[in-house]
Structures are given as C-alpha cells and as structure tokens.
Design a protein around this nucleic acid. Structure first.
Lengths: 150, 150
DNA sequence: TTGACATTGTTGCATCTGCAATGAATGTTG
DNA sequence: CAACATTCATTGCAGATGCAACAATGTCAA
C-alpha cells in the first residue's frame, strides 16, 4: 500500500502501465473478433492466421508462416494439421527441398476464406470508426513497436 | 492466392490487419517485459499483476482483482495461491463476508514489489522513448479501446 | 424462518502454449 | 566422399488457460 503519494513508485498504478494497457486492449479486441467467427466458422485465431496468410501469399511452408505471422512453428504446425483434417488445407512435399511442407488452400479452404475475409474487413472498419482520429496514431505506434529488432 | 489486385478482399494482407498488428505488438512488448523479471524474480505475468494491484489498492479480494486487471477469476485465484506458497501474499477470511478472501502483501511481498516496480517503470520509460511522438497517440487509442466494456 | 436464488473462490477438465528433443533432409567442410 | 552441422516440421511434455461445475456463504421475498 503506497504511503508517499508523491513517490512515483508508491503511486504506481497498473491501470496506467503502458504494457498492461496494450495487452488488455489487444486481448479485448482479439476476443471480440474471435466471437465473430469462432462459432460460425469453427476455427481458432491461429487457424485464421494461417488461412489469411495462405490466401495472401499462396502455397508456402510452415517456416514461411512462422516468419510472417509471429507464431511459433509448433503452433503453425498444429494449426495446419487441424486445417488439413477439416479439409481446408492440403499438405504436399516440396520437390526441391523435401524438408519443406507446402501448404495450399483447398477449394473448401478458398470458399471459407471468401466468407471469412469480409467479416474481418468489416470488423477492422468498425474498429477504425470507433477509434476515429486516433486510428492513425495507433497505426504509427504499432509500426514502431513491430519494427525489426530483437 | 489473390487474382484481382484491385479487390480489397483479394489483396487482404494479414500484416496490415489492425487486430493482428495490435496483438503482435502486445505479444512482443509482453515478452520483452517478462524477460526483465521472469528469471530474476521468478514470477509470471499474472502474478506480477496481482502484486502490482495489491501494492496500489491494499488488501483486496479475488473478485476485486478480477474486476480491475482483466483476468479470469481462476487465473487470479491460481496466481494468488502461487504467491502465497512463495510467501509474498497472505490470504485471510473477511469477517464481514466469509465468501471473500482478503489478499495482503507480506513483508517479503512488499520487498519484492519494491524491487519490481523500478524495473517496470524503467521499462515503460524506455518504451515511451522508443515511441517518441507516437506515445501520446497510442495512449489515446488504448483509452478508446479500453473504454466502457462491450 | 425458510427456501429459492445470487455471489465468491476453488478445482476438474479439455485444450492451448512454448520449449526442447527428435527424425528426416540438406548443407558444409576437410 | 565421409563426417559433422544446420534446417525444417513434428511431437512429447510440463505448465498455463478458459470454462463450467461445485461448495460455501450471503441475500431476500414470502
């Protein structure tokens, strides 16, 4: 319990702590977004990311998705397996390098993505509308935080 | 794979999708912050949040922490149990309502928080320095997203 | 007072997660 | 070419997570 109200450490408030606020906001948005498709389409966030990346980049390997979606390779691998079992994704060996697994959208997968993306874009539009003039500032800040470095 | 490069759905890029970017940035920041204390202090993010809230608000119940830290009550309960086992927190029954568990920092807990908070504040300061002029915009946007629940 | 209903915190359970170990394939070096 | 190192994807495992069920306690109207 803080005693000295002028001491910045004593008055530390988790609710004003930037890393906490960033996480709380991300969790809320993520949760709200998941509600838009979890029940209707039956896929998880990890699976949604894999589908979206396959839609955007075409057939790629697990490694590629790992590199471009901030997901652990085991997470990608498991998401891909579930998507394969659901019939949305096909796995094939790469002839040039047989360590690689080529992931491809099946026709069912393309159909799913075609229904999924409008929902995503509408959600993003609503989010930006809610942010109003702050949307730009958020994008800029996220760009800084996501800059290459580590 | 998108065919029509002018169709916003066809050209959808996960890397430009705001909810994804928000989550990726939050995950990075969270991870970087956790590295600052996980090994040195041996506590998790959930435990850190409970400690910080106890420091700020004094003795409170699990329900209070649940309401103010965006954590499930089971998560709070388990974090509190671990902190109690580690000697940082004491649990006591509330005489007025015996369903409530009063959580209190022990002397060891206060000592831990005293070492933890400077690390947190320094981390936040570095984060804001990195954001530069975008820090303000980020704070404003987070305030909108964290506004009255939905 | 009683009895239905609500609240609080814990726990069981299924699932998810990250990390490390593994096996298979490829690359590299002498 | 042989031996070793590296890369890729999967899997085992321990721990974390969310949800629902639960027991204990409290509230309130009849």
């Amino acid at each position: 319990m803080p005693e000295d109200k002028t001491d910045p450490i004593a008055r530390f408030d988790l609710g004003a702590f930037l890393p906490y606020r960033l996480n709380a906001a991300a969790a809320r948005v993520s949760r709200a977004f998941a509600e838009h498709y979890r029940e209707e389409f039956g896929i998880s966030i990890a699976e949604w990311r894999v589908l979206a990346h396959l839609h955007h980049a075409g057939p790629v390997s697990v490694r590629d998705i790992e590199a471009r979606t901030e997901m652990e390779k085991s997470k990608v691998s498991r998401a891909a397996t579930r998507l394969e079992e659901a019939g949305y994704v096909a796995k094939a060996a790469n002839d040039a390098d047989r360590r690689l697994v080529q992931l491809t959208l099946t026709p069912d997968g393309r159909a799913l993505v075609a229904r999924l993306l409008p929902v995503a874009m509408r959600f993003q539009a609503e989010m930006k509308a809610r942010l109003g003039p702050h949307a730009e500032g958020l994008e800029a800040a996220l760009s800084v935080l996501l800059e290459a470095r580590r």
